[in-house]
């Protein structure tokens, strides 16, 4: 078991995600071909996450987000099969995002392990899992917003308002998971250090910045001062916030993947 390297398994997953993306762009919407690559990609991705956990035990791998996020996005793609296929552009964009994040995690790995003494609470793991789910939902929300803003959205079979409604729905889920992740982190901070905020990790500020960014979006829907397109553009910009503020700090220096 020690011989199986988690990073190597993850590179396989990233390659399979790439093949799924290529299959998603083949003419005739060959859904079966996509699944042939996506299912093993998800299995390999799950194995990579599980191996990182298992091999690091009794320590907690801290920067597992970019490795787990493609798995979450892939799961969303897997469980969102639709028969009319009018969301094909959205699915392709999510596929592309999954591949970009997976490639980034494969080329810029970052390893830091927290001692078991500090992470021996379920809250440490809930903080991580809810955080990944939050990021995934926010990204899907941003993709739906981009689809709604697409100049040819009608020819693509997407109603702008429907896309923005879906974007909002995913944002609400993302906000819920993100909030739960922050609360789990705060409880962990209290139990482990006795304080509401642990200032040793600057990521606390980006997590809070993301939270306020999305609170702003949820309130924009109440004001009526921004047009639907304006709100859509703001929601689409959320992808930059998630990638720039929450995924980028989890990446390390470049390492040639082969």
């Amino acid at each position: 078991m020690e011989l199986i390297n988690a990073q190597f398994v993850f590179k396989i997953a990233a390659g399979l995600y790439g093949l799924s993306l290529v299959a998603a762009f083949l003419p005739g919407r060959p859904r079966g071909v996509v699944w042939i690559f996506l299912l093993p990609a998800l299995l390999a991705n799950f194995a990579a996450v599980a191996l990182r956990y298992w091999q690091a035990w009794p320590m907690l791998p801290m920067y597992l987000g970019p490795v787990a996020l493609p798995f979450f996005l892939g799961l969303l793609l897997l469980f969102s099969s639709r028969k009319d296929g009018n969301d094909v552009i959205v699915r392709r964009m999510i596929f592309a995002l999954t591949v970009i994040i997976a490639l980034a995690a494969a080329c810029f790995p970052k390893d830091f392990y927290l001692p078991f003494l500090k992470s021996c609470t379920p809250l440490a793991h809930l903080f991580f899992v809810f955080g990944v789910a939050g990021k995934g939902c926010f990204l899907v929300g941003a993709v739906w917003a981009m689809a709604g803003l697409h100049p040819n959205h009608r020819t693509l079979g997407i109603e702008s308002q429907t896309a923005l409604n879906r974007s909002l729905r995913w944002t609400v889920w993302g906000f819920s998971f993100w909030t739960l992740s922050m609360f789990a982190g705060e409880l962990w901070s209290y139990l482990g250090w006795g304080t509401p905020v642990v200032w040793d990790d600057p990521a606390i500020t980006t997590a809070m910045a993301t939270w306020f960014f999305y609170i702003c979006l949820l309130h924009l829907h109440l004001t009526g001062s921004w047009s639907a397109r304006g709100r859509g553009a703001y929601a689409a910009a959320g992808a930059l916030v998630i990638l720039g503020l929450n995924c980028l700090p989890d990446l390390g220096p470049f390492r040639w993947p082969f």
Binding site: P202, T205, A209, F213
Partner: peptide, 9 residues
């Protein structure tokens, strides 16, 4: 707040 916290990072 979002901008300020980003500067805070």
């Amino acid at each position: 707040l979002a901008v300020d916290l980003t500067c805070g990072y």
